[in-house]
Design a protein around this nucleic acid. Structure first.
Lengths: 337, 337
DNA sequence: CTGAAAGCGCTTACAG
DNA sequence: CTGAAAGCGCTTACAG
């Protein structure tokens, strides 16, 4: 039996012995059918556009979710889903009877899957916010605050020409981080210059392209090129850095750089990347644990968990004055290979 | 009904109409129980030591496996497994009745899970070779050939002091790539210097540490430091490069570098990394497709698929002569920031 | 060609 | 406290 209270210890022992002897392993499909509970969660991950899965963000999220599931004996099923999802696929996710709940890490503002989930009886947790669904459980970070901190830090280091490489404006996190950027500019007393805002898709490549456009400003635009860039993901910051170096400019002397994520690789890049840290693995873990909670205590209602972000200062955002000094300083060996 | 031949078209149409109307979605748990087939595969991924999941290899493999499953309407369940796996966990994997087959990407030479799988009735595919199980289906690449190509390339560029940062020697791929290195040295007429061989665990960090040891050779060992390194993964090559740069040396002038994998990031590093390309996503896809084949045609017996590797020459392995030239060359701007 | 019955391996009330 | 029955939602032979 399954841990029932009303069983004599002796009987239980007798059963357990047999279990031991035959290595009995319950068939989860049968258990799922009978009990309406399989111990499996679905994890929906966007694919396609923007090479989302190539971003180290998702592996970390998956790892976190797995870490949240395993100790409670839940398993994770992976569902890659196209941004342009069909109703058929959605129904397949909702009614396949194989999972007890779903974690969705789509960031789209109007994701049909999220709508469907909201009208279903399947428990679900959203990772990366979703404004429309007030009553959904979700795990998120202070996206706007991150953008704000990045800008204020750059402004504090004397930068006055701060550009932004944003995430897709059709996503919640993309929009929020940009909102923080705008707010930070206002607080620092700096104006918003449209030519210094470019939309990326979180990928290295898109950061590279956006930065090239900024560097063109020198010739094409009256505003000139920016002396600092906030990128809404570390991958885009890496791309921006590649473009800056290719143009023969230096980070941080010519252009300071702040990213968002704090990927494991970011502390090892040259120069090490200043960034807004979000605890990706913890988010995945929290989402899984929240979903288990939701399953076991449906009466508690939807939960929201917002992780704080943290500015991690490294070399890529060094003070602007450095650029004037280092040019003639004899001891500035570190700036040459 | 499920696509039976012996049904009148008219009856089928009548059924289909109802299906359409009510958005009928079969319960996969029930179908699995009744038909003994769920349409789900398990994907076993090693965790823990060596931060395996942090390596971009696994996300790519997962993505490939998903790509192989989706078009045939299979799903993937993710199972992270400790290297020190318990029998209980193994039985849980084998007899949970929730999956139709398993893809295992453990590389351990004597993995108890693989042994158990071999004695079970569950179809399975190994990714990354496994010598003991002659009769297992597996997907792999020419690991030894990769090590050999790397060494011959470095030797062809005039390097005579070629070190190796190997993968764990308790893993199949780690051993094979090292075997190729040894063979390459022999073919190039170079001797094997034990002080120039260090064992890593595929991670960036382990490459960094190993390279630091090599650089110590200059003082500690009579053999001096190597002028070239073959790393058995791109991540380790990146780590080696970090150590080289920190020591004030240059790639490729002072130390040439060849990796293994060809990760998306490797072509963008500075300098771009010469490496042995393996088609990671294709391996994952092939593994999934092979497993479907195994399931549908068990009579065909085990299959083996070995992908060729390819040497991708970039700047990190440049000819040795360059180091002498570039020191005085006026046009060598690219070697400074 | 079609309908009704049996059974997949469990869990959950429900008698004893 | 324990055993035997019913049923989860399907599929698969098996009568009609």
């Amino acid at each position: 039996l399954n841990g029932d209270e009303n069983v004599r210890a002796q009987t239980r022992q007798r059963v357990m012995d047999v279990v031991q002897e035959y290595h009995f392993q319950p068939n989860l499909a049968a258990r799922g059918l009978a009990a309406g509970r399989t111990g499996v969660f679905g994890l929906v991950i966007p694919t396609g556009v923007g090479a989302m899965f190539t971003d180290p963000f998702f592996p970390l999220l998956v790892q976190g979710a797995v870490a949240g599931c395993s100790p409670r004996d839940f398993s994770l099923m992976l569902w890659p889903v196209d941004p342009h999802i069909e109703q058929r696929t959605i129904r397949k996710i909702l009614y396949n009877g194989l999972v007890d709940g779903v974690i969705v890490s789509s960031f789209l503002l109007d994701d049909p899957l999220v709508d469907a989930l909201a009208h279903s009886h399947l428990p679900y947790v959203l990772v990366g916010g979703y404004p429309a669904s007030q009553n959904a459980s979700c795990v998120d970070v202070e996206n706007a605050q991150g953008g704000r901190l990045a800008v204020l830090h750059l402004a504090g280091n004397g930068r006055k020409r701060i550009a932004a490489i944003t995430g897709p404006q059709g996503t919640f996190v993309g929009k929020e981080r940009y909102r923080g950027y705008v707010q930070g500019l206002a607080e620092a007393g700096l104006g918003l210059e449209p030519d210094w805002v470019a939309e990326g898709n979180f990928s290295e490549e898109s950061g590279y392209t956006a930065m090239q456009v900024f560097l063109q400003c020198e010739k094409d635009s009256k505003c000139g090129r920016p002396d600092a860039v906030f990128a809404a993901s570390d991958a885009m910051a890496e791309g921006a850095q590649r473009a800056i170096q290719e143009a023969g400019l230096r980070v941080p002397e010519d252009v300071a750089l702040v990213g968002f994520d704090d990927l494991p690789t970011s502390s090892r890049s040259t120069p090490p990347l200043t960034t807004i840290r979000q605890p990706i693995m913890q988010e995945g873990k929290a989402a899984a644990e929240m979903l288990i909670d939701l399953l076991e205590h449906p009466e508690d209602g939807p939960q929201k968990l917002i992780f704080p972000v943290e500015l991690v200062v490294r070399e890529s955002s060094g003070p602007i004055d450095l650029s004037l000094l280092s040019k003639d300083e004899p001891g500035s060996m570190t700036h040459h290979r």
